[in-house]
Design a binder for these strands. Structure first.
Lengths: 206, 206
DNA sequence: ATGTGCGTGCGGAATGTTCATTCCGTTTTG
DNA sequence: CAAAACGGAATGAACATTCCGCACGCACAT
């Protein structure tokens, strides 16, 4: 999926095996960079083609139009980030530990993938992602978090607040920290990350 | 709003008869609506002119170009929001009460002015606001909050965490709640707002 | 009063540029 | 060699900005 770069190695004499997704992946990679930095209307298709080392026409072989590029990219990134959030979590860990791992995973993923983070921040509430796409993609994400918080409330470990407020408290901190880190306003290391999330837990614990 | 005046906006020969640039205000009002909904590259000057009931040429009488429209708008909105945050705050209130009032002010202001909020969210980290503009505008904001948090730390009422982490925790929650409320994912009333911010305080108190 | 000239505020057609998308010829694959 | 994949010039639309002409008010002369 990702390290198949025969094309670059061989250069002009590339021998395309049946790598159907190869160009598609290259285009999405370039799109991530350009869209996250210059926005949707700010990145011309010509530039996208150039950055991806691909002809303009090729883009239209893989995507009906510009909007489809962005919404496909959004889908892929979102599911990747949901997977990242879920790493090292199991239902039988203490709730506090699960909480801390989940949001540490999130924050670390954001910091390790600043462009992906900025892209998702920019487009999750934007008109380019139509709402059915968004719902389709976010339902898994929302459901697993909601059920986790409700489990915590039921077991009297998490405060009895509306689930959305709980989510906003934990998620908001992490997003805000990631933004500041990426903007260079703060320089987070593992220790600070851990302390920040523990602080967030103090807000929500019973 | 203060020392800068109409003269640097247009040139030395500015003689505005009308009540403080009626048209300028109308243009900025329309710009807020359009930019917050469609983005910078997504709103043509023709549309802005139409929405403001103004000729295209008129816009260029008040602003050198499109970027100046957006950066002027940003400046005005940011100082308005800083003023809102500061209402009903005085140094001799208990720290907890100051904290709760500050962030309640913020959240209520965001909810009451969704377009202004979305605009600021969208553009504070965007390339259209050059960084000197941003710093000029945010310094007052940052300084007053920073000194408040440090005061709280010194008096052992607030946890001994990096000021930026404290800021991110409180600010992040409020921003996240405002986004969800505006998107219709939650419906905040005064009681919920209060409870949410008290929760945030639980994170930060000693 | 009335005429004249001028400067400011204003509107919107005109201009030149940039862009998304299409179309077709070329290259690669099987 | 046929079909699929590809590239990029060509097309037409949309856009930011400029430029020019109109309207109105004011100063001063008649």
């Amino acid at each position: 999926m990702r390290f198949t770069d025969k094309n670059d190695l061989i250069g002009v004499f590339r021998i395309m095996t049946n790598s159907d997704c190869d160009k598609r992946t290259v285009i999405l990679d370039a799109a991530l960079q350009l869209f996250s930095e210059n926005g949707f209307h700010g990145t011309p298709m010509t530039l996208l083609a150039e950055k991806a080392n691909v002809g303009i026409g090729t883009i239209y072989r893989y995507f009906k139009n510009k909007e489809e590029v962005i919404s496909n990219l959004y889908k892929e990134l979102k599911s990747e980030s949901v997977a990242a959030m879920r790493e090292n979590i199991s239902r039988d860990m203490p709730i506090r530990e699960q909480f801390i791992n989940i949001f540490e995973n999130m924050l670390k993923y954001y910091i390790a993938n600043p462009q992906k983070f900025l892209f998702m921040e920019q487009y999750s509430y934007s008109p380019f992602i139509n709402s059915s796409t968004k719902q389709e993609v976010c339902s898994a994400y929302a459901e697993s978090l909601v059920s986790f918080f409700e489990y915590g409330k039921k077991h009297q470990v998490i405060k009895d607040l509306s689930t959305q407020i709980i989510f906003a408290t934990a998620n908001g901190q992490v997003v805000s920290l990631a933004k500041m880190h990426i903007a260079g306003e703060i320089n987070l290391n593992d220790d600070m990350i851990r302390k920040a999330i523990e602080t967030s837990w103090d807000a929500l614990k019973r």
